[in-house]
Design a protein around this nucleic acid. Sequence first.
DNA 1: TTATATATTGAATCTATATTCAATATATAA
DNA 2: TTATATATTGAATATAGATTCAATATATAA
Lengths: 202, 202
Amino acid sequence: MARTEEQNEKIRDATRTSIKNAALDKFSMKGLYATRIQDIAESAGIAQGLLYHYYPSKEAIYVDLIDDGLEKIIEASLCLRDMDGTAKEKIDFALKSILQTIQISSNFAQNSRFITQAVNSTAIPPEVQKVLDEKRDIPYQIIAEILAAGQEEGSVVDGDPRTLSTLFWANINGLSAYFTTWKNPGELPDYRLISSMFFRRE
Amino acid sequence: MARTEEQNEKIRDATRTSIKNAALDKFSMKGLYATRIQDIAESAGIAQGLLYHYYPSKEAIYVDLIDDGLEKIIEASLCLRDMDGTAKEKIDFALKSILQTIQISSNFAQNSRFITQAVNSTAIPPEVQKVLDEKRDIPYQIIAEILAAGQEEGSVVDGDPRTLSTLFWANINGLSAYFTTWKNPGELPDYRLISSMFFRRE
DNA sequence: TTATATATTGAATCTATATTCAATATATAA
DNA sequence: TTATATATTGAATATAGATTCAATATATAA
């Protein structure tokens, strides 16, 4: 007999992972339509043909990655919501960690860049649009919840919590975009500056 | 004899303008590589072939439009810098007018979306990259100047003016992106919330 | 060792679309 | 009217690159 199913699965998992990593690298830098299937295959260290044993098309890889990307942000948001502490502690923690992550690792910024590109194009495949429609709003809702709780506590400024949440994410996305798309981006602002928008003065 | 040179020029100007308008519409929504030359021609109401009497390639239209787009922002920034008033008045005026424009007309947001896409892709033609390298930084410098003057006046908070300027544009870009890429985006935040980041409390 | 299942290869095909070009339409100066 | 310059058309061409597929490599159970 040949390899066991378990062994084949391990091989396929490894190959699938390198395809996904390679594809995220390329898509996040060049977008769906400027990325060549050959780019991805080469970067993953496999032949073009093999890619089609894992995904039926270039678009299918994209859909998969968009879903992953949104899930990551949702997961992090939920984790923030469910942690102990006041609204101020949560927002400050979020800002501090995100700004730090942007500078230290490329993960957050890469993911953010990838999603930004998808969101900015109406040419994305309908399946991608569907995932975006279902999931993109969730992190906005979660931050709005946290801010609403802060208004109850009396710490957060007045105003529609959802609008404040929009402002929160606009800052994150704006800074992240700035940071990834610039040669030498300089420093990021202190998190307290951003935080000060959302909270009353003592 | 046939038409005068002046008359031909008028015809060509009109055609060129509709090509540029159509191309900006398409590029800003779908990006360079997902936009088909046929899309642009159709939307401009001309035949594909004619496009090549005005531009040597799809990329050339793109370069032209990127330059226009950056020039518009630079022009507005310079105008702000040179107006009378304190730093606070200028920044407040800028925030107020931009937020209003985002909601009222599509011009600013369309331009912003277009530039965001270009900036987020390393697949853009080298000529576009060149224009971006030359011009993208200027609005950041101008806002930094204004904020530095505000620090002299004592109204603007401490910190590297260029970093504050980054934060200013991150807010503008983040909100603009939010607003154009959402079906029913809801309200934009009050400009004073953003402004409060940059100025000391009375 | 060997048989076998499946992971992998890369050249061949097929298609979409950017670009070219020969022919046509148009408008006005004479 | 007519001659003419040039704006315009759209079908033909060329090509890049997505997808397919027949052949090969690999690894292990027997």
